[in-house]
Computed example of a mutant assay.
Amino acid sequence: MPQIFVPKRFNGPPDTANGGYVAGLIASEMRKAGMGGAIEVSLRAPPPVEAAMDLVIADGACECRHGETVVGAARRVETLGRAPAAPSLDVAAQGRDNFPPAADHAFPHCFVCGPARSEDGLCIFTGRPHGYDGVTDVWTPEADYADAEGLVREEVLWAALDCPGAFAIGFQERPMVLGRIRGEVLRRPEAGAPLIVAAWHLYDDGRKHGAASALFTADGELLAQTEQLWIELK
């Protein structure tokens, strides 16, 4: 039975693993089992850090368990619709100028978007630049996020595409947690090159909110994309 383990460095909310990172680990293991294409991961309970989680993979689906608790369930799904075109690198670089101030951040120590993680986080600060219908930022993955071939690991790509969706919805006004993420990695980039991260608000349904996100090369090639369901905290 395969297992995944999330070091405490890769947290989202306090003492909880980043949802996108966990989804990427699950997707990676499903791919090793011969299940390619788009993967949908639904989170059923807060995923723990510093604890092994068992994966039961069969018939095109996967269940992630921590002890008796079902943390998440995953399955293969249809290929996602094509993401909108990328903003230019110059426009994307302006996004972080409009990222909410640290005082308004519900989870300032989040590995992906936490302003308190300048030393060991991804520091993806997606804001809404003038004239662009979405949030965006430029992210240059460091070498320690790459595998032996120099390509950024799949779980890091999923993590990078997680939090931007919440900020496209309006995370600073209404804190929320990831409930479901459907993702597809078309090509893993090499570490050290600037990438464009962008996300768009899709819908609102009470406390449920939809978003989409995408990762592009500096010249606009689509590398990976997701569709997400976020649950607003009470």
Rank of each mutant, 00 (worst) to 15 (best):
V56A: 14
E78R: 06
A52V: 08
C62D: 01
V71E: 03
A45G: 03
T69N: 07
G95I: 09
A58I: 07
E40G: 05
I57G: 05
D59Y: 07
S88I: 07
V91E: 07
I39A: 02
P84C: 06
D59C: 05
R76Y: 10
Q94S: 11
L55F: 06
P87C: 01
L55W: 07
V70E: 08
D54P: 04
A93F: 13
Q94E: 14
M53V: 08
R96T: 13
G72L: 05
T79I: 09
G67A: 10
A73D: 11
R82M: 12
A61Y: 03
A73L: 08
H66P: 00
A74Q: 04
T69Y: 04
L55Q: 06
E63G: 12
S88C: 10
P46S: 10
L89W: 01
L89C: 07
V56S: 14
V56W: 10
E40V: 07
S88M: 07
L43M: 13
P84F: 05
A61L: 10
A74D: 04
A61V: 13
A74P: 01
I57M: 08
V41F: 07
V41C: 04
R82H: 11
V56F: 11
G95E: 02
D97R: 13
L55D: 01
C62F: 02
A83N: 00
V70I: 13
R44H: 13
P84M: 11
V71A: 09
R96W: 12
A85S: 12
V71D: 00
D54G: 05
A58M: 09
V71H: 02
G60C: 00
M53W: 07
A74Y: 03
R82I: 12
L55G: 03
S42H: 10
A61I: 10
E50S: 13
P84G: 06
A83E: 02
I39T: 09
R65E: 12
R82T: 14
G95V: 07
I57R: 00
S42A: 15
A58Q: 09
V71M: 10
G67W: 10
A85N: 11
Q94Y: 04
P48I: 03
G72C: 06
A38G: 07
H66N: 11
V71N: 01
R44K: 14
A51R: 15
T79G: 11
